[in-house]
Amino acid sequence: MAKKRMIQAINETLDSEMAKDPKIVLFGEDVEISLFGDTVGLKDKHGAHRVRNMPISETVMSGMAVGAAAAGYKVVCHMMFGNFMYTGFDSIANQASKLRYMTAGQISLPIVYMSVFGGGRSAAAQHSDAMHPMFMNLGGIKVALPATPADAAGLLRASIHDPNPVVFLQAAGRGGESGEVPDGEVIFELGKAATVHDGDDVTMVAIGAMVRPALRAAKRLAEDGIGVDLIDPRTMVPLDTEAILSSVRRTGRLVVVDEARDLCSAASHVAAVCADQCFEALKAPIKRVTVPDLAMPYSPPLEKALLPNEGSISATVRDLLGKPAGVEA
């Protein structure tokens, strides 16, 4: 174990994988100097032909990833901000996610489309979306959402090894956060959830950056005798539904915390799966803690009010259990 920042975990993973496999290439917006620090120094180590800055041309960039992968490379395409993936969406939505199926499995497309995503930094609406639900609905793309530096290392390594396209979304503004990362080549199977806090009263599924405030809430609630079983799904495609269902069957309650807007959020999908598959176990309605259906604002107080936080997460759990704050549990 060693304490590492998330960008450091990502950087070291890219470095060690590129050192082992000459077929891995990394290209994208400013990957040489690296805006976030996650790809810094890799050009010097692995060569200008394998680590390349792209023009700000997302349409051709996302498609080049498809072509290079089809021609035998393992491609890491850094699109900087998740919102920029909208600009390059055709090749992700129409090509990367579908060409294997449409050609009856003639090819696999090992591509990692990576970017930061989400709010909290006054970057305003065009740099702050949480777009993972949109990718979940494409069908042929895996979706990885690391919550910690360890997640980032383990999920990125698995994403690079995966023969399929993966969208790897790191929480914006969290790159500098530290966390313990296991020594050696940590790898987390895509589709395998982690339980990050144990409890018997309510199951909580927190997605990506929401794991941290959810964990804080779980710890605080535990002090009041409320047991939260907190699950970090790590990937939304594939989704470890068994881990979620077995927890809900035990606790009878579910709260899903998601940074996406409420309408068709990833939380909505988790809620639907549980309503469908373990309705008989539910003692209370399923609750979603999400972002209101508004664009992300610029001004800090406005933005802060929209994002789920420890307070709003705790309040949702307390309401669900009929145990408001300040009342003896």
Binding site: T59, V60, S62, V66, G67, A71, V75
Partner: peptide
């Protein structure tokens, strides 16, 4: 769509 894909294959 083939324009960008071919460009990537040419890079490979």
């Amino acid at each position: 769509a083939g324009i960008s894909i071919t460009t990537g294959a040419a890079w490979a």
